[in-house]
Write a protein that binds this DNA or RNA. Structure first.
Lengths: 331, 331
DNA sequence: CTGAAAGCGCTAACAA
DNA sequence: TTGTTAGCGCTTTCAG
């Protein structure tokens, strides 16, 4: 910057003003400085700026390794929105869902030069992590659990599971079976809970739960068991990836979908419409979640602490061809 | 830091030494300082440290919106490896593959506090982007095009396409049709090129190319056309997502896979083994690519400029159930 | 082994 | 509209 000042014959102060687009600089001076900047290839030093102003125009994001469709969409949405708002994002992945890894990721994030943090977490691990987040550093949590200290944003898990279950019931199925996600996941718990409640409200029997780990292969293993039980005519699977595994197992065992068994997923991942058959599923608005959480975070950064509210983003059913009326079930 | 110094009765200098784990501090002093740090909740200011030392322990990554399976795996791998090496990563997404968006992302990255940059790019746009990367800032490119100025890392596209085509040929198919990616993509060109060469080497006719845009729905549209042409018995699809669309179209039109048509994909995304039928595909080592590119970048950051070499990471076939011998083709 | 002084590049506050 | 001064929190250099 001093170089630029010398080159264009003004003070470094004026250069600073030009660099920041302030108005009180004469037009000709401004142009001269701009030209000097260009010829000298000047680029501002973020570190110095940050040191001086105390803000970094960067937000930190922690999430488990980018394996789930939802996390990735959410991350993408946050990244795009942040870029638009002039913020860049620093990503700290959590390799394994262990206590230690979470604590380490937190600690690392706290040492970063960030103005705020978005935690994309879906497990109990967070509460137990032995890290105290310094007061004054805004945090937003994306989770299915209402944390007491921070604003939380989430898709409407309960309503989604209710829609899925009701859809199957309306099709005339006597009851709906459920392939749940892992016990450690709050969103899995929410979906299961809501499935139970919906069944109870309709006075239907609640069959035992199948429990997977979100992976396609766990869905496949469970699908094999579902195929063996001809009582099962309707299944609500807690995510699309497991639903894909279920479909495969059903095909392999010669059970027709939807003629013999109706299957509903959860997520509406990009590929779901091309599953065979195209999957009826609950569409989650991950972009909406990302957008909303960034909005809250930027508000907190700009205007001080916000109330730890819970924002629920609406979801909706996408009905495709993996579900059919019970009457059509070949019986 | 001054607070800590005062609290523990030493100079801020000594605090700095302790914070950086230097050895020339007496043990008792060190402990005292450490205790003060803890009680005062001291955390170092990255900006100040960066300003002074000129390094940020951060690397920047630019990529098109996180939509492709490969990009995401690569990003994840880089993030994990970087964390291990004590670096954090700053992500700058490119929203649209336009000249302007690319230039803006570059510019934004250059203003960041980063020690090096990894460009995950798969289009011609890069060369034309009117941004000059300042000399001295290490850059690694992940692409299927050998850039002259920077080290490039990539999966072995040519060999992968060759393996896929040969696999189909060895199964006795008279020739192999190809569903290519968009023309703007270098990796798509490589795969197409290698498919052509392999066919030529085997003295087989080269059918016209179908061209998609990587998306599942473009694969579906093309699949519909493939289903109509009963001459087609073997198809090499340039990525798994389009292959999924092709499979769906084939099912809808009653063409059996692999009995009537054999299909090979490219990527080996996590879901491919649960497609119906499980997809034979080329496994790309995205983790390997991420790891290798970070390795090169860190080397350049630590030891000065490296030669702009091209690193090719090996791929291999994964044979599942979407391919079968020509004899079995129901003819 | 420890401390004092200087300065990294920038901007807020004030003065001209 | 422009310039001067001071200092953000840290580390490098040199002295003790």
């Amino acid at each position: 910057m001093a170089d630029v000042a010398r080159h264009s014959g003004v003070s470094s102060q004026t250069v600073s003003r030009v660099a920041n687009g302030l108005v009180n600089v004469e037009k000709t001076t401004k142009e001269r400085v701009l030209r000097s900047m260009r010829t000298l290839g000047y680029r501002p030093n973020r570190a110095a700026r940050a040191l001086r102003s105390g803000t970094f125009r960067t937000i930190g994001i922690t999430m488990f390794t980018l394996s789930s469709f939802g996390n990735i969409r959410t991350l993408n949405s946050i990244a795009v929105e942040a870029a638009r708002a002039g913020y860049s994002i620093t990503l700290v992945p959590i390799e394994h869902p262990t206590q230690k890894a979470v604590s380490m990721a937190f600690a690392s994030l706290l040492e970063q030069a960030v103005d705020g943090i978005i935690l994309v977490i879906e497990a109990h691990l967070v509460d137990d992590a032995e890290v105290t987040i310094p007061p004054g550093l805004p945090v937003v949590v994306i989770d299915s659990f209402p944390h007491s200290n921070y604003p939380v944003v989430d898709n409407d898990q309960m309503h989604g599971a209710q829609l899925a279950t009701e859809h199957l019931l309306e099709l005339g199925h006597p009851t709906v079976w459920h392939v749940a996600g892992p016990e450690s996941s709050y969103s899995a718990s929410r979906r299961e809970e809501s499935w139970r409640a919906t069944l109870a409200a309709a006075a239907r029997p609640v069959p035992p739960v199948f429990r997977g780990d979100w992976s396609t292969s766990s869905g496949y293993d469970i699908g094999l068991r579902i195929a063996e039980n001809t009582d099962i005519t309707a299944v609500f699977v807690a995510n699309d990836q497991m639903a894909l595994g279920v479909l495969r197992a059903l095909h392999e065992r010669g059970r027709r979908v939807p003629a013999d068994v109706s299957v509903v997923g959860f997520d509406d991942m990009a590929e779901a419409e091309s599953f065979w058959p195209p999957l009826t599923t609950v569409h989650q608005d991950f972009d909406g979640v990302g957008r909303r959480s960034l909005e809250i975070l930027l508000d907190a950064i700009g205007n001080g602490p916000v109330k730890p509210t819970t924002s629920i983003v609406p979801v909706h059913m996408v009905i495709r061809e993996s579900t059919a009326a019970f009457a059509a079930n070949g019986r």
